[in-house]
């Protein structure tokens, strides 16, 4: 704990990252009640209004919807999906990676082979095609598909950190007193691999935001009327010369969230990896 504070004091960027992240979490929870508009309400008199006009703090889009409200409401879904995704993909990654690495041999080869095949399609293409084919994404289906697309990556990290511990003699010691596989995996090995896995999970959080935003941008993310940051960018892309704010503010929201998580993740890795 003392060490965390010591490191925090020495990294102003981490403080900045954590502050921005907390800001977005705060907005996602309390934000919608703070704005006078709803995210679907169309102000027909003020389409493509500049920031500040008629109480539209960040302006409106081509249909006259309030951008700030839409961004705030949009933060809820993207944070939810990204959080679910990073937890789920880390969890499945541990299960898959641990069982492959621990048992080794044929199981390991089979799992690696499967992951190789999964990785043969770029994750974004995979998610995009599956979501496009299924149509009509919900928060659950989106989280599930993105998690699956991330499993090869998280499973490899888990497997790798398991392998560094597996050859340790404390594992041998547990074996020769007849411990079960589950005990060895989760009581002996897991606590010692948790550092890299948490680091990977926080980095995965940033990648999830990136992926979800990109899917929204490609039109296969959450369906209207739920506001989606990525979709807001592509919707307003045609009016970029007339109402640049309608494109830039959602883009800025994505950028700030992603960067804040990256900074946070970097700090987590500094603390956790250094400690060992």
């Amino acid at each position: 704990m003392k060490y965390i504070l010591y490191q925090l004091k020495r990294s102003p960027l981490a403080i900045l990252g954590i502050a921005i992240l907390l800001f977005w979490i705060f907005l996602a929870i309390f934000g919608p009640s703070l704005t006078p508009f709803t995210h679907t309400e169309m102000d027909s008199l003020h389409q493509m209004a500049a920031p500040g006009v008629n109480n539209h703090v960040l302006g409106t889009d081509s249909l006259g919807r309030d951008l700030l409200t839409r961004i705030i409401v949009g933060s809820r879904s993207i944070l939810t999906v990204a959080l679910l995704t990073s937890i789920a993909s880390t969890f499945f990654g541990i299960i898959v990676g641990f069982s492959a690495g621990y048992f080794g041999g044929a199981i390991d080869r089979a799992v690696l082979r499967m992951l190789d095949i999964m990785m043969a399609i770029p994750p974004l293409v995979l998610a995009m095609v599956v979501l496009g084919v299924l149509g009509g994404s919900s928060i659950m289906s989106l989280s599930l598909i993105v998690s699956i697309a991330f499993i090869p990556a998280t499973a490899r990290v888990s497997r790798g950190s398991l392998l560094t511990c597996k050859s340790s003699e404390y594992v041998d010691a547990a074996r020769i007193r007849g411990e079960s596989h589950l005990y060895i995996m989760f009581v002996e090995i897991l606590p010692n691999t948790i550092g890299p896995i948490i680091v990977e999970a926080t980095a995965r959080f940033a990648y999830s935001i990136m992926m979800v935003a990109s899917l929204g941008f490609l039109g296969v993310g959450l369906q209207p009327p739920t506001p989606d940051w990525g979709m807001m960018v592509i919707e307003n892309r045609p009016i970029i010369t007339d109402a640049p704010w309608a494109v830039f503010y959602p883009a800025l929201a994505i950028a700030s969230l992603v960067i804040s998580i990256s900074l946070f993740s970097d700090f987590v890795s500094k603390v956790l990896i250094h400690e060992q």
Binding site: E169, Y170, P191
Partner: peptide, 28 residues
């Protein structure tokens, strides 16, 4: 292998390793 040995047998034989840092679980 150890998997097929009875608990009674496992009790009889113990092993001490070269590197104590690696033979004790650092998080226990």
């Amino acid at each position: 292998s150890w998997k097929k040995r009875s608990p009674e047998m496992l009790k009889q034989i113990q092993l001490i390793f070269q590197n104590p840092g690696r033979s004790l679980n650092p998080s226990h």
